Computed example of a mutant assay.
Amino acid sequence: MTFPRLFPGQVLIDDQIGHRVALSPGQSLTLGRAADFPLGLDDEFMHRQFLQVWDSDGTWMITNRGGRLSANIQPRAENSFSQSRLGPGASLPLPLGESAVVFATSVTTYELDFTVAATLRPPTGSCAVERIDGAPMTVGELILNDEQVDLLRALAAPLVRRPGTDLSEVPTVRDLEQTLGWSQKKVNTKIDYLSKALEGSGVTGFSARNGNAPTRRLALARYAQENYWSLRKQP
């Protein structure tokens, strides 16, 4: 199988199943179930517009345009062990060289190969892509009510306030009772219901087989941290 030759400043995207494209500086591409680059065409939980790759004055950026799914960016350079989490609404620079972008719905796990070639000089120009399509709506879109937003933001607060904090700092049920002014029963009921709603929306990590109530609370805290800046109450 022949791969496109990369020139300085280009980025190659490969889905490992026969679909690949090379972008030049100034270009932009959307990836998803009904996007420029197809992902999960038979996966009803995949966002129609999930990721966008775009050029920002010589740096290739990736943006999560979805509302529920997150992705991991895993550099493949020798001696590189760091990875970055790309939550909904977030943007990150793609590392030079080879990397993998990994994400999952409740149907399957996806992995894309990215190769960013070093640029000789920063390109100029803007990039913007819009795509209008008639694809079916993504299954599992989640609309949070005000109390669910309050719960998620309370769970994520210490993780957002002190980046690098581990899950031991996640508020306990008693902490949440005091912060939110709810009863213990209400806190536990809200955690259980929201976990089930996220599972039904195709977000991984919330099925019953993944553990007990404390496990679900920690999973909700991690989800809330990744989505913190996109959590909004309904007008």
Rank of each mutant, 00 (worst) to 15 (best):
P25M: 09
L144D: 15
A157E: 14
L231Q: 09
Q178D: 15
T2G: 08
L151Q: 07
W229D: 07
T204D: 11
Y228E: 07
P171D: 02
G58Y: 11
L51R: 01
N188R: 15
P88M: 05
S201R: 00
A135N: 09
A34M: 02
G26W: 07
R162L: 11
K185I: 13
P25D: 11
D192W: 06
L218M: 14
Q184I: 12
T179P: 04
R222I: 08
P214A: 14
L167Q: 06
Q16M: 09
G140T: 02
L69A: 02
V21W: 03
K233G: 04
R76V: 04
P214S: 14
V149R: 12
A156T: 11
Q16D: 04
S56I: 00
P235H: 06
Q83R: 11
V139N: 01
N145R: 13
R216V: 07
S168G: 06
Q225H: 14
L120S: 14
L69C: 02
S91Y: 12
Q234F: 08
V139I: 00
R85H: 07
V149W: 09
F114A: 01
A224C: 04
K190H: 11
V101M: 13
V53T: 05
T138H: 07
N210G: 03
V129T: 15
A197W: 04
R174I: 05
Y228Q: 07
V149M: 12
I62M: 13
L194Q: 09
D175W: 02
E199C: 04
L29R: 13
N210P: 01
L144M: 15
L220D: 02
S82W: 14
V116K: 12
S106N: 15
T204G: 09
Y228T: 10
L6S: 09
L112D: 03
T30I: 12
S168W: 00
E177F: 03
G67D: 04
T119Q: 11
G40K: 03
T189P: 01
T179E: 13
M137N: 08
L51E: 02
S183V: 13
P214F: 12
D43E: 03
K186D: 04
R216D: 15
H19K: 15
D55K: 08
V21T: 12
Y223Q: 13
L23V: 09
D43F: 05
E199T: 06
K186P: 01
A77W: 01
E44G: 09
M137W: 03
S24R: 10
A22S: 13
D146L: 05
T138V: 14
Q52P: 00
A22L: 02
G164R: 11
A128G: 15
S201N: 01
S230V: 15
P123W: 00
R121S: 07
L120K: 15
S24M: 08
A221E: 06
K233L: 02
D43S: 09
V116Q: 12
G26H: 08
L231E: 05
A135Y: 05
Y110V: 00
L194M: 10
G200E: 13
A224W: 03
V203Q: 01
